[in-house]
């Protein structure tokens, strides 16, 4: 099978359709609009629905409604839009509805700008809305992963009955790379909890209300157990030259691509650097970092933010090795050279 040279945003929608997604509800926002445009083109073609909602809030609630019907449904937005969707995501997490939310991050706070940042880590990885919940978060760094991770996202969403995020940036969305597609998924099995508008399913209830404190606590405990299971089973990382590494760079998304080139350059210099890329941000690769922290000299976390993921790294490392941070904000993407120079400055 040959490959297509297409943008990540475009690959994402085609991948979602192949993964059985037939419903897209969204609101335009740069730099995520191309996902909506691609959905507008492809969803109706395959008998699906594309609907441009009146707001981000309406869009996520349409997702909530369709997800209650057990269909594969998605929305996509960018940072300020995700802020608006948080109430709906909390409801979906509470009602345990599987769905896919894509966040193509941009610069903030406020209106910020449309350049790529990674400053949504906290609002996406840590829950974001009200209540004790978390959503699995996948962080692609290539066109191929933009396509493939949609399938993984829906599988995780249904396996654990939870909203799942794909957290990416403008670069990964806008970049064209060769992408290979597989075959479409067949009919989905019936879900015993969903509402299909028929006699068999009518006694199901989609709700996040638990009026009694004890009942709501029980529900919360169930959710926490679910998140613990996800942490045990669903961590995914990419490791690059890490086996003998004395120094480990950590970054996700487009940053991990830059770090890979940096590691190649440092290895050319004879320096033992490696790269750890979390492909899942929740669950976070705690055990892997924990193991590394017993032997590596130093970690360097690079983010296009004020340092959000680095806090999770530090919580695992617990001072056993120094954890350095290099960040750019406002939509400034660090260059390979810039990180290379910084990296050389911190080695002992």
């Amino acid at each position: 099978m040959s490959k297509l040279l297409i943008k990540g945003n475009d690959a994402l929608i085609r991948g979602a359709v192949l993964a059985g997604c037939r419903f897209y509800f969204g609101y335009p926002i740069t730099p995520a609009s191309e996902i909506a445009e691609s959905a507008a083109k492809f969803m109706p073609r395959v008998g699906g629905t594309f609907l441009q909602a009146e707001s981000e809030v309406a869009a996520i609630n349409m997702v909530y409604g369709a997800a209650g019907g057990g269909v594969r449904v998605m929305t996509a937005s960018s940072s300020p839009g995700i802020s608006l969707k948080q109430e709906g995501v909390s409801y979906a997490a509470g009602a345990e509805l599987p769905c896919l939310i894509v966040d193509i991050m941009r610069g903030g706070p406020g209106l910020g700008n449309i350049a790529p940042e990674q400053s949504d880590y906290n609002q996406v990885v840590k829950g974001g809305g009200h209540g004790n919940y978390k959503c699995p978060v996948l962080a692609p760094n290539s066109g191929q992963e933009m396509a493939d991770m949609t399938g993984l996202a829906f599988d995780l969403a249904e396996k654990y009955r939870t909203p799942v995020y794909i957290l990416a940036d403008g670069f990964t969305g806008q970049m064209m790379e060769p992408v290979e597609f597989g075959d479409p998924l067949g009919a989905l099995p019936r879900k015993d909890w969903a509402i299909y508008g028929d006699k068999e399913s009518k006694h199901n209830l989609i709700s996040s209300i638990f009026l009694n404190a004890e009942d709501l606590e029980e529900h919360n405990i169930k959710l926490q157990k679910k998140y613990a299971t996800i942490e045990d089973n669903e961590v995914r990382v990419e490791e690059f030259m890490i086996d003998d590494a004395e120094y480990v760079l950590i970054g996700y998304g487009i940053i991990s691509r830059i770090l890979k080139t940096v590691v190649e350059k440092l290895r050319d210099d004879g320096l033992k650097f490696g790269l750890l890329r979390p492909k899942t941000l929740f669950p976070f690769p705690k055990k892997i970092i924990d193991n590394l922290s017993t032997r590596v000299k130093k970690f360097l976390v690079v983010e296009m933010s004020n340092g959000q993921m680095v806090e999770d790294v530090r919580l695992v490392v617990l001072g056993r090795s120094p954890v350095e941070f290099y960040g750019r904000m406002g939509g400034v993407v660090p260059s390979t050279n810039e990180i290379y120079e910084y990296t050389k400055s911190i080695i002992e």
Partner: peptide, 10 residues
């Protein structure tokens, strides 16, 4: 909006 979502599905 929720009604729209489920009605579009079924």
């Amino acid at each position: 909006a929720v009604a729209t979502g489920i009605k579009r599905a079924y």
